[in-house]
Amino acid sequence: MTNEITPEYKKAVLTVLYQLADDDYLFSYRGSEWLGLAPHIEEDVAFSSITQDTMGHAKLYYTLLEELGEGSADSLAQLRPKEERCNSLLVERPNGEGYYKEAPNYDWGYAVARNYIYTTAKKAKIDALKASSYAPIREVAVKISTELYYHQMHWTTWFTQLCTATEESRSRMMKALQEVIKDAGDLLSFGKSVKHITACELIESEVAIKERWLAIVTPTFEAVEIAIPVLPDPIINGRDGQHTDDLTSAIETMSEVYRSDLAASW
């Protein structure tokens, strides 16, 4: 199948890869801002390990894009303007008030809720990608699965514990979950190219993936006795290049050194 791909098929592959790459890239960036600020040292080690894995996943996707002639993986990660990015709204939201270097006022409840929802959604997608018609995506999905297993376990543990520990922690988690779900409308969306992507059998339909996601989260929500959230319609759809200014400032920070000399080798 991959030996001779039609331009139409290739277009669908690129769309899927950009969404996956940009999601993990931004998610990892938000994680790296937390470095050194987690509730305890063991968590700092675990969280930064997950963040590092996730950057590795983004690199896998950007490398596939590079191999398809889209430009270097680094320039794809660092230089594309906001309008060309395909990440979901959820990952571009800041961790909280304040810049990561000066007086960051980050909420661990929001971090846990976001990481839990993002990771379970990622799990649903990765499982759905294992049957992709495009072999390189299938291979990457299998590779990522082994690490994702631990990420999911980690965030499910935190989510469950904080939802059930104390009255305060439960109420904080309910509030955080609300914030997260409000932004999660485009998380399992493929944007306007959805029909084409599905027709090319690159991934299952949005409906099928949503069902996978529900099957993953249902036991957890039942265990903590919280109603399973309904993913809303997207406020804006990141898959179609609709983004907030938070993404612009994130890209500026991430690419500051790289942009200082594009011809240089770093």
Binding site: S32, L35, Q52, M55, M254, Y258
Partner: peptide, 27 residues
């Protein structure tokens, strides 16, 4: 940590993330 998000390439980002994570582990 100030330079982790700003590391210039994907390769360097992975390298410095691994390094700082090790330091936390030593702590």
């Amino acid at each position: 940590k100030e330079w982790v998000p700003k590391a210039p390439t994907l390769y360097r980002k992975l390298g410095i993330m691994a390094k700082v994570q090790d330091e936390m582990g030593h702590g």
